[in-house]
């Protein structure tokens, strides 16, 4: 069976994926095209994860393959076309919550989809979010929380952003656990995502809208 880079990477065939990348690179192809294919493959990986076909270790594995491809391609990229970043986002698990597996998956998916992610970690205080927004001027924020009571922390964080006079400058999405429209309203967020791929589409839509 012959693979393309898209099928090889999305089927997690490390050897084939690396071999095809190397061959294409050696044939003098524009490295950017290889990276674009890798990104398409990662979208398929994300979709399969969403459908439960892939699991957390598969995501990690796909990331490892991608990293090797990127490392191989990067030196060949022209200077002015560094691995391009389409946007920036601040993300963190809100105060009182320490779950980060879901948040890390979101970070990962955002990263491979071209976002520069400032991950603040777990149990992140309201002040920390506010300070980071001020320091970086990043205007997309993702609040993660798995505990039901994290919804209160999300609400408090968003209120803190408001009192700091920054609410109109940022778009805020929430995710993790059993979040729905009701909770979005309760916390005062702009949007919510059910899974990591949703976070990517929301963030992308916000980029387009600006």
């Amino acid at each position: 069976m012959s693979y393309t880079l898209v099928t090889a990477l999305s089927d997690l065939r490390e050897e084939e994926a690396l071999k095809i990348s190397e061959e294409r690179l050696n044939s003098g192809e524009n490295p950017q095209g290889i990276l674009d294919d890798a990104r398409s493959a990662m979208e398929i990986v994300g979709k399969r994860f969403e459908d439960s076909e892939y699991f957390i270790p598969d995501l990690v594995y796909s990331g490892e393959i991608l990293q090797q491809i990127t490392a191989m391609v990067k030196p060949k990229l022209k200077r002015n076309s560094q691995v391009e970043r389409i946007g920036k986002i601040i993300i963190g698990t809100v105060a009182g919550d320490i779950h980060d597996i879901g948040k890390n998956i979101v970070t990962f998916m955002l990263d491979i989809n071209g976002f520069e992610v400032h991950d603040l970690g777990i149990d992140v205080s309201e002040q920390k979010f506010v300070e980071t927004i001020k320091e970086t001027n990043i205007n997309i924020v993702g609040l993660s929380g798995f505990l039901t009571l994290a919804f209160d922390s999300m609400k408090e964080t968003i209120e803190a952003i408001k009192s700091a006079g920054l609410r109109d400058d940022v778009k805020i999405m929430i995710g993790g656990g059993q979040i729905d429209e009701e909770i979005k309203k309760y916390t005062g967020a702009d949007s919510y995502g059910k899974d990591a791929m949703a976070a990517v589409s929301i963030a992308k839509a916000w980029l387009g809208g600006k």
Binding site: I56, P57, V60, I98, H99, D100, I101, I122
Partner: peptide
């Protein structure tokens, strides 16, 4: 607290196999 153990994420991913 499990979530704060040093190798928690790594171990969790491995033990899902």
């Amino acid at each position: 607290e499990l979530g704060t153990a040093p190798n928690f994420n790594q171990t969790f991913i491995q033990t899902s196999y």
